[in-house]
Every structure is written in C-alpha cells, then in structure tokens.
Amino acid sequence: MNDLPLADLDAFAAVARERSFRTAARKRGVSASALSEALRRLEAKLGVRLLNRTTRSVTPTEAGKRLLERLTPALGEIAGALDQVASERDSPAGTLRLNVPTIVARVILPPLVGRFMKAHPAITLEVTAEDGFIDVLAAGFDAGVRYEERVEKDMIAIPLGPRVQRYITAAAPDYLARRGEPQHPRDLLEHATVRHRFQNGVMLPWEFGEGDATIIIAPPSTVLANTIELEISAAVDGLGVIRTFEEFLKPEIEAGRLITVLDAWETSFPGPFLYYAGRRHLPAPLRAFVDFLKSEQRQAGR
C-alpha cells in the first residue's frame, strides 16, 4: 500500500471533513467529479468503502473515520513542512483555518485580523465561529481559540486578546422600574431573565463571585436563544435581566438602554487562548499567526 497517491488521500480527507464533494471541491478549486474519481481510485486500491454517498449526504464509514483520524495529523505535518520550505523563499502563503467562540469572532478577533492580514497578504483566513468544544485537528482546523478551562492539556496555548474579561448583569431601565433592582444573585430567582442556550441544547447556570464566595443559580427565563443579538434586544425591550460578556453589553449600557446590576458580583476570568498541536513543522500561515500574536503581546507589555 506504499504506492497510494498522496493526492487521493488528501482528496478523501477534504471530502470526509466537509461531508460534501461540492464544498470540498469549491474550497480546493477543483471539480467535484475530480474528487469523486480520486475517491473511486483510493477505495479500489484499498478494497474498502471509505464514504457512504447518497443524493443528500456524504458520511465516512467506520473505516473512513479511522483513516481520517490517522491521516489528518500526517497531512498536516506534510503541509507544514512544505509551507515552511516555501516561507523561507517567499512571504508566508496558504490557508489558516481557525475555530473560535462567537465572542472572539465578533469582538476580539476583528481588529487582530486587520493587522495580521495587512502584514501577510498572501495568507487566506478561514474562521468558523461556534461555542462547542471540538477536536480541531480531526475537524480539519489548524488551531482553535478557547478559554483556559476548555483548552486540552496536550495542546500549546498562547494568549490572544485581552487577558481579563468579565461577565456582567444588566437590565433595561423600565424593567427595573417595574420589578425593582436585585440586590443579591438569589433575588434573580424571583425575576424574569434572558438566557443563552447553546446549539447542543445546553443552558449553563449563572455563576456569581464576591471575594471567595461563589453562588450558582439557574433563574427562570422568559427568553431563551442561541443568538446574542436577540438576547440583547430582548433585554433592551425590558423582557428580563441578562448576564453575559461585558463586551456584548457595553454599547447598550453606554447608550443608557441597559443598566448594570449586582456590580459587586461581576465575574472576572482570563481572556482566551489560541491553542494548537505541538508538532515540529507548523504550517506557515499558523506559524505567522503565532508569531504575530506573540509580537502583539510584547507590544502590549503583557
């Protein structure tokens, strides 16, 4: 099996990750039929089906899943080695694929992206925003961004963005006029709230801290959503108390449409980290981004 074409293996990995011939073909700049032919050659050579194809879906078989799991890091090593050679000749080029939380995609990453892309115009950046925790390598990403408690221990992590962030609690002036201002987190059990529910259905309780004291509650909610825009709109309309990242609420607070409450119980925590596998040959775009972030931290005196 040593004569398996690397291009066919790479084509399989692309289709298996995207679960779509068309999407994989569009991202690679080739035709879907070319990828389909590569898959046929590979499956014929191996004598096993790697992908189940129907008119509506493409899903890896068990054999395909096992091959993809082993193949993804190996292809990454090859791409990294080639990119490193290319970067010694020219400026870094290629695609950098990041998986980040929505707060990072909307608030923290945009100013960094502008400076990074201007410094490295030959790099293409692909960002996927989601709040669930995934295996970034198996999913085909070069790196992920998460908060400290969700970074796997075997990954390399470097700071990205502000080193301290806060959760704050707020409500509309007319809501507070009608229902009164909560003086303690437990008072929220008698209030209406606007809460966030993740796409997987999980709805985290609210955690408050004051000194060494920690209080965790699950207040009743009048609005549940997985989009922050709707949640903020509901809070501004006086439908309940909201608790989320300070960056999301700051514009509404500065405009007077929301008022902070329970200020003594705001929660501070470390800012996000870029994390990636500690392999020897990083892809040139990822290496450039890592070096960029380290430079940003040095300039900020962190």
Rank of each mutant, 00 (worst) to 15 (best):
M1F: 08
N2G: 02
P5L: 07
A7C: 12
D8P: 05
L9R: 10
D10L: 00
A13S: 09
A14G: 01
V15Q: 03
R17V: 14
S20T: 00
S20A: 05
T23I: 03
R28N: 08
S33E: 15
A34E: 07
S36I: 00
G47M: 07
R49W: 06
R49E: 12
R49A: 09
L50D: 02
L50R: 01
N52V: 10
T54G: 13
S57Y: 12
T61Q: 11
L71P: 06
L71A: 11
G76F: 03
E77A: 08
A79C: 04
L82Y: 12
R89Y: 13
T95C: 04
V100I: 14
V100C: 12
T102L: 09
R106I: 04
L109V: 01
L109A: 01
P110E: 06
V113C: 05
G114R: 10
M117D: 01
K118G: 00
H120E: 02
H120L: 00
P121W: 03
E126V: 15
V127P: 09
A129S: 10
D131I: 10
F133H: 11
A138W: 12
A139R: 15
F141N: 08
D142C: 04
A143H: 03
V145K: 00
R146I: 02
R146W: 05
Y147H: 14
Y147E: 13
V151W: 04
A157Y: 07
Y167G: 04
I168V: 11
A171N: 10
D174G: 01
L176N: 06
A177E: 13
R178D: 07
R179N: 13
G180A: 00
P185L: 03
P185E: 06
D187F: 09
L188Q: 12
L188V: 14
R195C: 05
F198V: 00
L204Q: 07
W206Y: 13
F208M: 11
I215F: 04
I215E: 14
T222N: 14
T222S: 15
L230G: 11
E231N: 10
D237F: 05
G238S: 01
L239D: 06
G240C: 01
G240D: 01
G240E: 06
V241I: 14
L249S: 00
E252Q: 07
I253F: 02
A255Q: 06
A255H: 04
R257T: 13
P270C: 07
F273N: 02
Y275Q: 09
G278W: 09
R279S: 08
R280V: 14
P285S: 09
A288C: 09
V290W: 10
V290L: 06
E296S: 10
E296P: 07
Q299F: 05
A300S: 15
R302D: 15
